[in-house]
Simulated scan of single mutants.
Amino acid sequence: MSDDDAFARKFAELGEQFRAELPARLAEIRAHLAAGEFDEVRAIAHRLAGRGGTFGAPGITSAGRAVEEADAAALPAAVAALAAVIGG
C-alpha cells in the first residue's frame, strides 16, 4: 500500500469518526445552551465548522458558523438549524 493510499484510508476513517460523533456533539451543544453556557456552545460549533470543512460537510460548516456568530437571542434558532443539518 502506498503512502497516498494509507493517508486516504486514515482520512476516510477520521471522516467516519467525525460523522459518528455528531450526535454527541449536538447533545453537548444543547446541554450548554440549556445551561446558558453560550461560550461553550460557540466553541463546539467553531470546532464543528472547521471539521465540516475538512471532511467535506459544507452544510455543517455553514450552520456551525451561524451558531458561532449568533447573539444570545438568535442562538436557539441557530442551534436548531445546525441540528437539522446534522439530522438530530
Score class of each variant (00 low, 15 high):
Met1Trp: 07
Met1Cys: 14
Met1Pro: 14
Met1Thr: 14
Met1Gln: 14
Ser2Cys: 07
Ser2Met: 09
Asp3Glu: 15
Asp4Leu: 12
Asp4Tyr: 11
Asp4Cys: 05
Asp5Thr: 06
Asp5Tyr: 13
Asp5Phe: 09
Asp5Ser: 06
Ala6Thr: 07
Phe7Arg: 06
Ala8Asp: 14
Arg9Ile: 09
Lys10Ser: 15
Lys10Ile: 15
Phe11Val: 06
Ala12Val: 10
Glu13Leu: 13
Glu13Ile: 08
Leu14Arg: 03
Leu14Ser: 11
Leu14Lys: 03
Gly15Pro: 12
Gly15Asp: 10
Gly15Asn: 08
Phe18Ala: 05
Phe18His: 04
Arg19Lys: 13
Ala20Asn: 09
Ala20Gln: 14
Glu21Ser: 12
Glu21Met: 15
Glu21Leu: 11
Glu21His: 11
Leu22Ala: 06
Leu22Met: 11
Pro23Ala: 13
Arg25Pro: 05
Leu26Ala: 13
Leu26Lys: 02
Leu26Ile: 12
Ala27Ile: 04
Glu28Ala: 12
Ile29Gln: 01
Ile29Met: 12
Arg30Asn: 13
Arg30Tyr: 06
His32Met: 05
Leu33Pro: 10
Leu33Arg: 06
Leu33His: 04
Ala34Tyr: 04
Ala34Pro: 11
Ala35Leu: 08
Ala35Ser: 12
Gly36Thr: 01
Glu37Val: 03
Phe38Asn: 05
Phe38Pro: 00
Phe38His: 12
Phe38Ile: 01
Phe38Met: 01
Val41Lys: 03
Ala43Tyr: 05
Ala43Gly: 02
Ile44Arg: 09
Ile44Pro: 08
Ile44Phe: 10
Ala45Gly: 08
Ala45Thr: 03
His46Cys: 07
His46Trp: 07
Arg47Trp: 14
Leu48His: 09
Leu48Ile: 07
Ala49Ser: 14
Ala49Lys: 13
Arg51Ser: 15
Arg51His: 14
Gly52Leu: 09
Gly52Asn: 04
Thr54Gln: 12
Phe55Thr: 00
Ala57Glu: 11
Pro58Trp: 03
Pro58Gln: 00
Pro58His: 01
Gly59Gln: 02
Gly59Thr: 02
Ile60Cys: 13
Thr61Gln: 14
Ser62Gln: 14
Arg65His: 14
Arg65Phe: 15
Arg65Pro: 13
Arg65Lys: 15
Ala66Ile: 02
Glu68Pro: 09
Glu68Gln: 06
Glu68Tyr: 06
Glu68Lys: 02
Glu69Ala: 10
Glu69Phe: 02
Ala70Pro: 05
Asp71His: 00
Ala72Met: 01
Ala72Val: 00
Ala72Asp: 01
Ala72Arg: 00
Ala73Asn: 01
Ala73Leu: 01
Leu75His: 00
Pro76Gln: 02
Pro76His: 00
Ala77Ser: 11
Val79Trp: 04
Ala80Val: 04
Ala80Glu: 15
Leu82Ala: 04
Ala83His: 00
Ala84Leu: 07
Ala84Gly: 12
Ile86Tyr: 06
Gly87Met: 08
Gly88Trp: 10
Gly88Thr: 11
Gly88Asp: 09
